[in-house]
Design a protein around this nucleic acid. Sequence first.
RNA 1: GGCGCGGUAGCUCAGCUGGUUAGAGCGCUCGACUCAUAAUCGAGAGGUCGGGAGUUCAAGUCUCCCCCACGCCA
Length: 570
Amino acid sequence: MQRHLITSAIPYINGIKHLGNLVGSQLPADLYARYQRARGNEVLFLCATDEHGTPAELAAAKAGKPVAEYCAEMHTIQAEIAKGFRLSFDHFGRSSSPQNHALTQHFAGRLADAGLIREVSEKQVYSNADGRFLPDRYIEGTCPNCGYEKARGDQCENCTKQLDPTDLIEPRSAVSGSTDLEVRETKHLYLRQSELKDDLDAWIDSKTDWPILTTSIAKKWLHDGDGLQDRGITRDLDWGIPVRRGDDDWPGMEGKVFYVWFDAPIEYIACASEWADAQGGADWERWWRTDKGADDVRYTQFMGKDNVPFHTLSFPATILGSGEPWKLVDHLKSFNYLNYDGGQFSTSQGRGVFMDQALELLPPDYWRWWLLANCPETSDSEFTWELFQQGVNKDLADVLGNFVSRVTKFCRSKFGEAVPAGGTYGAQEHALIAELDTRIARYADLMDAMEVRKSAQELRAIWVAGNEYLQAAAPWATIKEDADTAAMQIRLGLNLIALYGALSEPFIPDAAAQLQTSLNLGDPQWPENASEALAVLKPGHAFVVPDNLFAKISDEDRADWQERFAGVRS
RNA sequence: GGCGCGGUAGCUCAGCUGGUUAGAGCGCUCGACUCAUAAUCGAGAGGUCGGGAGUUCAAGUCUCCCCCACGCCA
C-alpha cells in the first residue's frame, strides 16, 4: 500500500473563490485524493484557509467586524462551499490556528539558529490616523508621471509606472483617507534565501519528472537578474502570528507579526497537526517527518502557476534552512488559468462565476466533470457557457446518464427489477472485456500520472464502450428469439453500470453514490480486471431504476446564465 | 521594452527523443436502430499544422527571422 500526502494551495480568506481558483488546485487535488483512496492507498488530503495579512484586516474592517471574527466566519463559509463541491479534505484547517502559530515560531527560531535570518532597518509609511504602518499599495495619491489621482504607492494603474510611496503627490491612506502620514524607521527580519540558492538549485535539478511549467518558473526566479533575493518575513501588523524565536521572545520584534507568505505554507504542516488533534491525537508526524515514519510518503502539491515560486523556493527554503528532516514535496502539479468568456476570471473585479453561485445553478458533479475534463493543464483554457452546456449534455446526460437509463428501464420492463439469469458470453462480450481491460489500465496510468484531461477522455471512452456494445448486442431484438441471451446481455449491461460507478467516483462522486444505491451495492470496489468486475451483480440481485442521473442544460437556461453572469459581481 | 507560454480541422484540444496517407471529442451531412433523457451506433465531408528562410534522405516535430494572442516583469 502506498501512502500519499496531498495538499491543495490554500485559498485566501478574503471572499469566495471563483471556478478558476477551484479548477487550479482544490478540484484536481480532490480527484487525485479520491483516486488514490479508491486504489486502496492511505491518503492524507489537506487544505486550509490562508488568513493573515493586510487584505484580511481591511476586508474585516469593511465588514465592520473584528478580524478574528471575520476570518472565523469566512472559514466556515469556505468550508461549507468546499463540502458543496464534495472536496474530500481529511482536514480543512486555518493558518491562524494555534498549531500554526507554534510551528511558524519554531521554524523562525531554527532559521535564526542556523544564521539564516538577518535584521534590516527600513523606512515605511505610518498613518497616525489609522495607527498603523501602511503597505505600499494601501497608500493613494496623485501620480507624478501622469497626474492620475488614484495611483497606488507601488504602481500607477493608469500609466503603469512603478512608484515609491514617497513619489506620490498628496499621499493619503487608502484605509481611512487620512493625509496624516509620516515615514518611520522600522526593523524587520529577512530570510537569507540567497544563502540557500545552491541547495535549492540542486534540489530543483533533481526533479526531472516535474512539468516544464514548474521548473522553468523556479529556474527563472533562481537565476534571473541578481538571483534569488532575501525576503522580509515580518510586518508591522496586529493580525498575524507574533514574531517569536521558537518559544522565546525576540528582542526588538515586539508588536510585529510574521509576513503571511512565511506562515501560510507552514500551515501545510500545521494542518496535519490540526487534523491529528481533531482525530483525538493521531500521529501526524508520520506524514511529515522522514525520521518519524514519513520515509515512504509521496507528497504531491497542487496549485495554480502563480503559486509555483512559493512552493518551489520559499517553502523549501524554510524547510531546508531548518536543518530538520521535514518532508519536501515529491511531485508538484501546477495549472494554468481558466479564462471566462474571452477574459480572465477576476476576484477583485467580480468577473466570472463564483463557487457559491455555481452550486446554486447546478449540482457539483456537473461542474466537477466539465472543469476537470477541460482543466488548463498545458495552457490556459476557456470557459464559455456554450462549451459547458455541450460538454455536460453530451458526456454526462447522453453518454453516461442515458446508458444507465436504457439498461435499467429495459430490464425492468422485460425482466423486472432484479438481475436476470441465463445465457453465456459470446464473441462480442469477450471483445468488450478485452477492450475494457486495456482501457481501465490506461485510465489508471493516466490518473496515477495526474493527466487530468486525458483521464477524463479515457473514462468517457469507457462509458462509450457500453453504448457501442449495447447497440451491437441489441437485446431489444435478441429477446424476441432468445430470452436467455438477452438476459445475459442485460446482466452485462447492469454490471457495466456498477463498473462505471466505481471508475467514475473520483470525478462525479454523487452520481457514483446514486448508482451504488440503485444497484444495492456497498462501497465501490476498484476493478482488478474487467471479467471479475462484470460478475459482481449475480442473477437475482435486486435493484431499483434510478432517476435520470443528469438533466440536460436547456438553451433557455444557458442563455439566462450567460446574461446573468455577463457583468461583474457586486 | 524584456521574459514566459501558445498559434494544428468551424469549436475545444492530443500529437515523446524529427520518419508510412496529421488525430480525438463536439458541431455538420448521410445512413442504421428504436431499449433509452428526440438519446444511441456507424459512415463521411472538413486542415498546404501562424508566415518566411534554413538544417536533413525526411519537419507539425530542430535552427533563425517575422506576425498574432495571452500572461508575468521592468
